[in-house]
């Protein structure tokens, strides 16, 4: 079993530009492709300047007929609303991040704004709101730390100065493996339960946001910890897989020296489409945003 997850200390290589290299891609899952179902994931990256910006990853509910439209709307609108928050709160101008308490309040207000706008969009287009159900993971990235918030499942992580990738959200899971909540769910009466917001007050060398379609190849999520071969005891864990991220980080940073951004994006697309047999055989849609400080 490939469950070893040791960090590899190669983080300081190629860091000289003092800006973020961000790659993002959504690949349609094998089953969606086979049955002509559109990609229900969307992502959006809003660069405020080379050092600051907003990245958003959304996964439309498989059960909701128009969730591809919902996830696109939520991704774009969340990026816009959080970009306005960065400007309004003057975090970039003063080069500082809010406290945990302030960020929790602001991120909830922002997501509620997105929910309200989605409700209006549904009304204008004569659509039932639940048909637009989508998860959302958003990060405001900067050179001094990260502000992350999310509703639903998927994963997010950051890389610190020791090259250790660490999870920064806990996916919301129901009793069954494919159950979660969406921005359209009845969650607004109890945001403490359903909306997670965190300040990562540490200089990041990388960050990643991914839809749950990617978690089986990019994260350790379920490991059999039983000591005996004939028994099963599964532990639910949440660890970015170092053996996945390190070679990719090294590869993209090296390519950055010789390739255009479009060419690096194309490399990233190839990795997410068919980087390994396991990635290629993934049945669900796959969206991943990877930010690297270079």
């Amino acid at each position: 079993m490939n469950t070893s997850n040791k960090p590899i200390n190669d983080s300081e290589e190629f860091c000289s530009s003092n800006e973020w290299l961000i790659v993002d891609y959504s690949a349609i899952g094998k089953d969606h492709s086979k049955h002509n179902i559109p990609c229900q994931d969307h992502r959006y990256v809003q660069r405020i300047n080379p050092q600051w910006g907003v990245a958003v990853c959304c996964d439309g509910a498989g059960s909701a007929e128009k969730s591809d439209i919902g996830s696109r709307f939520v991704a774009e609108r969340t990026a816009n609303v959080l970009t306005l928050a960065v400007e309004k709160e003057q975090w970039l101008i003063h080069n500082h991040l809010p406290t945990q308490e302030v960020w929790r309040t602001i991120s909830r207000q922002a997501l509620y704004q997105v929910y309200s706008d989605l409700e209006s969009f549904a009304q204008i287009n004569n659509l039932e709101l639940k048909l637009l159900a989508s998860t959302v993971i958003a990060v405001i990235y900067s050179p001094i730390g990260l502000l992350v918030t999310h509703i639903g499942d998927g994963r997010a992580a950051y890389c610190n100065h020791t090259a250790q990738w660490t999870a920064i959200i806990t996916p919301f899971k129901g009793e069954e493996a494919n159950m979660t909540v969406f921005i359209t769910s009845s969650i607004w009466h109890d945001p403490d339960k359903y909306i997670e917001s965190r300040v990562i007050d540490d200089k990041p060398l990388g960050f990643t946001l991914l839809s749950d379609g990617c978690e089986n190849f990019a994260f350790l999520t379920h490991v059999n910890t039983s000591k005996t071969a004939d028994q099963i005891k599964i532990e639910d864990i949440n660890l970015p897989f170092q053996g996945f991220y390190h070679p990719i980080v090294k590869h993209l940073k090296a390519k950055h020296l010789t390739l255009s951004h479009e060419e690096i994006q194309a490399e990233w697309a190839t990795i997410l489409e068919s980087g390994t047999e396991k990635i290629k055989e993934t049945t669900d849609d796959k969206t991943m945003i990877l930010g690297l400080w270079i």
Binding site: N2, N216, A218, F219, T221, H222, G243, F244, P247, T276
Partner: peptide
């Protein structure tokens, strides 16, 4: 790059 990417056994 495919030769270097590892994936976990979940």
């Amino acid at each position: 790059i495919s030769d270097f990417i590892e994936t976990p056994d979940n």
